[in-house]
């Protein structure tokens, strides 16, 4: 080869330029900034957040676990609105089967089945995931009410449930441990495993994914199964910790998990984002909620604040920023000066 064409910037070699390139390639920037700002403010106003660290981490795990599974689906540009009701229904399943050794696998299996049904409607029948999973949301919350006979169901083995809420070692409760296991598993899956990496292709350019021979439908199935399974796992955790399954469980989960994913830099149309981003988003939300709770801030105010942060997360997306600045300038009166006339 005698001739090459240099079209892009060359690979950076120095340490700092290299570091800058690496950081420039990440999508979590906004989530990190938000988390740092929150932590900095709280260090002065609510140091209790840090002294009660196990509780704070537990809170993060509570918000985050569903968000992690959801992210797998969001990366493909799909939505799974059924996560919260999957959680409720699987929680009820755990409670109505007396033997936990059967109940837990049954609940998890239910999550997988829910994922398969969602994916069937989306990938095979061709319904938009918003609609398919919305249908699933209603179906499952109905199922949760039917299975529970519309009342909270206590688990038979109360002691097992109460034990489940206790730390295993140090501050680590089973919930926190499971959360980190799920995080590591999904993180490895979407960064190291070929099938997981291809989620980005399915979300970023589906036609390209098809054309390259990627089994797009199978990937969609995988994604929804992950989401369903993780939601069901969350349902199991919720029920065991509460020792009671409520058919209304997880009513605040759906929005919180989407919020965590969005704050973490995941693009709802797919192809851009990361599991680490979701972890950071969940951490920001979790810490913020703990802090606001400790300050006794009214819930509507809390929600307003979280909504504002969500909006900021969305509008600080580089492409949105550009559009906004252009529009703002266009609406401002013409201030252009003529230099040489």
């Amino acid at each position: 080869m005698t001739e090459t064409i240099q079209l892009g910037g060359a690979k950076e070699t120095g340490f700092f330029p290299r570091l800058r390139t690496i950081i420039g390639r990440r999508t979590e920037g906004r989530g990190v900034i938000l988390l740092l700002v929150i932590l900095a403010v709280l260090a002065f106003t609510q140091p209790l957040v840090f002294t009660a660290l196990p509780v704070t981490i537990g809170r993060i795990a509570l918000i985050g676990i569903v968000a992690l599974g959801l992210t797998a689906v969001i990366l493909m540009g799909e939505l799974d609105l059924s996560v919260a009701s999957t959680l409720a229904a699987s929680g009820v399943v755990v409670a109505i089967i007396p033997d936990l050794r059967i109940a837990i696998p049954a609940a998890l299996l239910m999550g997988i089945v829910v994922g398969i049904i969602n994916a069937f409607f989306i990938a095979i029948v061709g319904i938009a995931s918003f609609i398919a999973s919305l249908g699933m949301l209603f179906a499952l919350s109905g199922l949760a009410f039917v299975l529970s006979n519309e009342v909270p169901v206590s688990i038979a083995n109360q002691d097992a449930g109460l034990a489940f809420g206790q730390p295993l070692f140090g501050p680590v409760t089973p919930r926190i441990l499971l959360f980190f296991l799920v995080f590591i598993a999904i993180q490895l899956f979407v960064t190291k495993v070929k099938a997981g990496r291809e989620f980005f292709a399915v979300g970023g350019n589906r036609q390209a994914a098809y054309d390259s021979g990627i089994p797009v439908k199978r990937r969609i199935f995988t994604g929804f199964i992950i989401s369903g399974f993780v939601s069901a796992l969350a349902g199991v955790i919720y029920t065991l910790e509460l020792t009671v399954a409520t058919p209304t469980a997880g009513s605040t989960v759906l929005l919180a998990s989407f919020a965590a994913a969005i704050i973490g830099g995941n693009y709802l149309k797919g192809g851009r984002g990361s599991i680490i981003g979701t972890l950071i988003g969940a951490s920001s939300l979790g810490v913020l909620q703990v802090a606001l709770f400790l300050s006794g801030v009214q819930v509507p105010v809390q929600n307003t604040l979280i909504g504002a942060i969500l909006l900021i997360a969305v509008i600080t997306d580089p492409s949105s920023l550009r559009a906004i600045s252009a529009r703002v300038r266009a609406t401002l009166p013409d201030r252009t000066k003529v230099e040489a006339q």
Partner: peptide, 22 residues
């Protein structure tokens, strides 16, 4: 110090944990 869990038992449990920690 008031909290509002919006009738979500799990959220109330989490708030309870924080309250106990405080």
């Amino acid at each position: 110090t008031l909290s509002n869990s919006g009738y979500d038992a799990t959220k109330q449990l989490a708030e309870c944990e924080i309250a106990v920690a405080a």
